[in-house]
C-alpha cells in the first residue's frame, strides 16, 4: 500500500441507469394487438332483393363441424385453398370453367378486365374458430397475392410498395375482394 489508487467516480452511473430506464419506458410496447381486420356487412334489410349470381361465378367454400372443407362440391384442403382461390379469381378470358370477366375502365389503369367471381364462405355452427381464422387468413393471403400480381403487371412493383394513393385505389378496384359470408347453418349438430 505504497500508493493510494484514486477512487473511480461512480456518480455518473446513475445517469447511465436513468438513460436506460427512460429508453425502456419509451420502447417497451406491451402486447401489441394484432388481428385480421374485416368489415361486416350492414344489417340485413328484408326489403333488399337477393342478388342472383351465375353458378360459374361463385366459388363455394363450406366448412363443416369437423373442420373439413368442401370447395365447389369437392372435398378441399386448407393447404391448397390459397392457390385454388388465386386460380379462380384470376382473369381467364372466354373460359367457361372460370368466372366471367367484364371490361371496366379504371382511372390510372385504363381498360382492364375485371373478374365477376365471388367467394362464398359458409361455415357450420360447430366449426372451430381456429379453422375459421385459418380460412380467413388464406383468403386474405390469396387476395393479397392477386393484388400483387396486378400491381406488378401495371406498375412494375409490388402492392405493398405502392406509394401513390391513386394507384392503390386503382389496384383495389381492379382486384376487388369479393367474399360473401352466408348465414351459418346448423347441419353438423353440436
Amino acid at each position: 500500500m505504497a500508493r493510494k489508487t484514486p477512487e473511480v467516480n461512480a456518480g455518473s452511473m446513475a445517469d447511465i441507469a436513468f438513460l436506460m430506464l427512460i429508453f425502456f419506458l419509451v420502447t417497451t410496447t406491451m402486447d401489441v394487438d394484432t388481428g385480421i381486420m374485416v368489415q361486416l356487412p350492414p344489417p340485413h334489410d328484408p326489403n333488399q332483393e337477393i342478388q342472383d349470381f351465375k353458378e360459374r361465378n361463385i366459388m363455394k367454400i363450406l366448412v363443416n363441424s369437423s373442420d373439413r372443407l368442401l370447395v365447389n362440391g369437392k372435398p378441399g384442403d386448407i393447404r391448397t385453398l390459397r392457390n385454388d382461390v388465386i386460380d379462380f379469381m384470376s382473369i381467364h378470358e372466354n373460359n367457361p370453367d372460370y368466372p366471367e370477366v367484364t371490361p371496366k375502365f379504371i382511372d390510372g389503369l385504363g381498360q382492364v378486365n375485371v373478374t365477376k367471381g365471388l367467394i362464398s364462405l359458409k361455415n357450420d355452427r360447430g366449426t372451430s374458430y381456429e379453422m375459421y381464422i385459418r380460412v380467413q387468413d388464406e383468403l386474405e393471403l390469396a387476395f393479397k397475392e392477386l393484388k400483387n400480381r396486378a400491381s406488378v403487371k401495371h406498375f412494375g412493383r409490388e402492392y405493398d410498395k405502392l406509394i401513390s394513393k391513386d394507384r392503390i385505389k386503382a389496384i383495389n378496384k381492379a382486384v376487388p375482394k369479393r367474399v360473401s359470408e352466408a348465414e351459418p347453418e346448423d347441419i353438423g349438430g353440436k
Binding site: 394484432t34 388481428g35 385480421i36 374485416v38 361486416l40
Partner: peptide
Amino acid sequence: KQELRQANALKVVYSSN
C-alpha cells in the same frame, strides 16, 4: 357478429397472433 351488425359496429378485428 349478428349482434354487432345490428348495433352497426361493422369494423371488427379477429384478434390473432
